[in-house]
Simulated scan of single mutants.
Amino acid sequence: MTLTQGFCDTAFEPVREALEQQLATGEELGASICVTVDGEPVVDIWGGHTDTTRDTAWERDTLVNVFSITKTMTALSALLLVDRGLLDLDEKVAHYWPEFAANGKADVEIRHLLAHTSGVSGWEPPMQLEDVYDHESAAARLAGQPLWWEPGTASGYHALNYGHLIGEVIRRIDGRTLGRFFDEELARPLGADFHIGTGPEHFGRIAPIVPPPALEFDMATLDQDSILVKTLTCPLLDYERTADPAWRSAEIGAVNGHGNARSIARLQSIVSGGGLLDGRTWLSPGTVDAIFREQSDGFDLALMTPLRFGIGYGLPQAQTAPTVPDGRVCWWAGVGGSFVVNDLDRGVTFAYAMNKMAPGLIGSDRADAYLTAAFEAVA
């Protein structure tokens, strides 16, 4: 009995087989995988269940919180403004958002926000999770904060505040909130079922998250003033609360995007197509080239792992993401395992979304298995 539904080109059958194997063993609860080549789907499959009792099947239109995959949508939104000449990557953030210059941040540039090198990777304590839901006040707090390190000298992953920083710049330029801008300029025109700020009409299609095993170490034993602790615990992302209506409906452009592999791949195919999709130029070659302007390559101050960042995306890094191919490739992952890779050399986008979270902050054994199968098929 087949455990998956959807379409899979014959050359990519190993991808389906890999997903079915993970579903059969119970490692995977419910998931979707989509691969596009030159913007056209060659894999669009899904399977499993949305609930731990396995009573409700994962359907074609099931949505799930994909956490930091949301950041790639936020970055894509900013790149649209770059392409229109409304946003300059090398301009000071304060040029668009004057209040941000406070407390020594006058020289922080837009590229620093997009590459996690701004020196503002989180909020000064105290900060509760519900405080993040109010974009205006949360952004104002970031504007008033001091730097945690010298901008541009290292990355410190902007885990929860990436969308507040970039979203506020977008709002200052365009007038629309990030969620509305993304919906009206990208998701709706492309027919992509992805939401930054998900309306209640979609709640019935959302697969609840199954949290990963608890951390094996106690954060309380670490230096509470470290960039790692302040970034990841102020506030702490509570996975159980991702089922709350307030979380789902807030516009948190770092972590609360809801979609599936099909919608992720549809949107990100703009990048793997070199800016061209459906015969329309969404981004010029120069804007796409900017993604690959390396901004940092080294030990990330917040995640404590080696990372390479371009503009808005991670770049290939063999230690941290060994299954991401080399070349003109950009990628990112959501905590628990969701993954997207844009390979411009081959015109390929790979996307994976699931509800059972794996341990670790970047990738998973499951994601690696699917990625390996997909890229072996296009090698």
Rank of each mutant, 00 (worst) to 15 (best):
Gln295Leu: 03
Glu240Trp: 04
Phe12Glu: 06
Asn103Pro: 07
Ala261Met: 05
Ala24Val: 12
Lys92Ser: 14
Gln317Ile: 07
Gln319Asn: 11
Val15Thr: 00
Ser284Pro: 11
Pro14Val: 02
Ala379Ser: 13
Val255Pro: 08
Thr242Ile: 04
Ala102Cys: 11
Trp331Ile: 01
Phe350Pro: 00
Asp107Gly: 14
Lys71Ala: 06
Ile227His: 06
Phe203Asn: 09
Glu184Ser: 13
Gly273Val: 02
His158Leu: 01
Ala351Leu: 03
Phe100His: 10
Val37Phe: 02
Cys234Glu: 06
Pro322Phe: 01
Thr242Arg: 00
Val288Lys: 01
Tyr239Glu: 10
Pro359Arg: 02
Leu165Pro: 13
Leu165Phe: 06
Val288Ser: 10
Ile291Thr: 03
Pro189Gln: 02
Pro212Ser: 13
Tyr352Met: 08
Pro151Phe: 07
Asp9Thr: 01
Gln5Pro: 00
Ala367Val: 04
Val378Trp: 09
Ala214Tyr: 06
Asp297Gln: 15
Val120Ile: 14
Ala154Glu: 08
Pro359Ala: 10
Thr2Arg: 14
Asp289Ser: 13
Ala321Cys: 07
Gln295His: 09
Ala94Asn: 11
Pro306His: 10
Leu63Tyr: 05
Glu40Phe: 02
Val288Ile: 15
Tyr162Phe: 14
Asp174Gln: 11
Pro189Thr: 00
Phe100Cys: 08
Asp88Tyr: 07
Val348Phe: 04
Phe194Thr: 07
Ala57Ser: 13
Leu81Asn: 05
Val210Ile: 15
Val324Trp: 05
Val329Met: 11
Arg241Leu: 08
Arg248Tyr: 09
Ala243Pro: 01
Ala358Cys: 12
Leu303Gln: 01
Asp51Phe: 10
Arg328Gln: 13
Phe194Leu: 09
Ala106Met: 09
Ser263Lys: 03
Trp282Ile: 03
Pro322Lys: 00
Asp9Val: 03
Pro126Arg: 05
Leu186Tyr: 00
Ala159Gly: 07
Met354Trp: 03
Ala140Phe: 03
Gly257Pro: 06
Trp247Tyr: 12
Ser68Thr: 12
Trp148Asp: 06
Ala138His: 04
Arg176Ser: 13
